[in-house]
């Protein structure tokens, strides 16, 4: 399988990568509330999508060996352009195209100095919620930890 390596438009951008990951996990309510909170709503033009398709999810043999195709997952994605020219991409698991479109809008807004703070507030909210959920799950799992002890067999 060949790689879709293209000329890079921009160098790998850790902040944007992290932000896109958080936007992918933002709920529709979180995204809608952040959109409603914007004082100045930008004009949004569709470039691609929003559309739902598949991504083939890969695993690794033995957990860390060579890759194999595990099965597909639904993915929704959107690319939009703001009237000020910024291009935003949104992509997330599931068939919710509305969330993908909003994620793309916030990815584009993050590139605008004036909207940076609004986007950061949304990202912080999502990150806090995820951290809380993760913490809660880890604690619930930890409560099921057992220490088996081996019984001595036979007589001493």
């Amino acid at each position: 399988m060949m790689d879709a390596k293209l000329k890079q438009e921009s160098p790998p951008d850790p902040a944007r990568k992290k932000a896109m990951g958080l936007l992918a996990r933002a709920t529709l309510d979180e995204l809608n509330a952040a959109w409603e909170a914007l004082a100045d709503k930008p004009d949004v033009h569709p470039v691609r999508g929003p559309e739902t398709g598949l991504v083939m999810v890969r695993g690794r043999i033995g957990g860390g060996g060579d890759p194999f195709n595990l099965g597909e997952a639904t993915v929704s994605r959107a690319t939009i352009r703001l009237s000020s020219g910024e291009i935003g991409h949104g992509q997330l698991l599931g068939a919710d195209r509305q969330r993908a479109r909003l994620a793309a809008i916030f990815d584009a807004l993050a590139q605008r100095e004036d909207d940076r703070a609004n986007v950061d507030a949304l990202l912080q909210q999502v990150a806090d919620r995820l951290a809380l959920e993760e913490r809660r799950n880890a604690e619930e799992t930890a409560a099921t930890r057992v220490d088996f002890f081996t019984m001595v067999r036979g007589d001493d």
Binding site: A4, K5, L6, K7, Q8, E9, S10, P11, P12, D13, R16, K17, M20, G21, A24, R25, V55, A73, V75, T79, H89, Q91, L92, L93, G94
Partner: peptide, 11 residues
Amino acid sequence: LPELGFAVSLG
């Protein structure tokens, strides 16, 4: 994402 040149999390 080929258009960005890096991998992003989908969830």
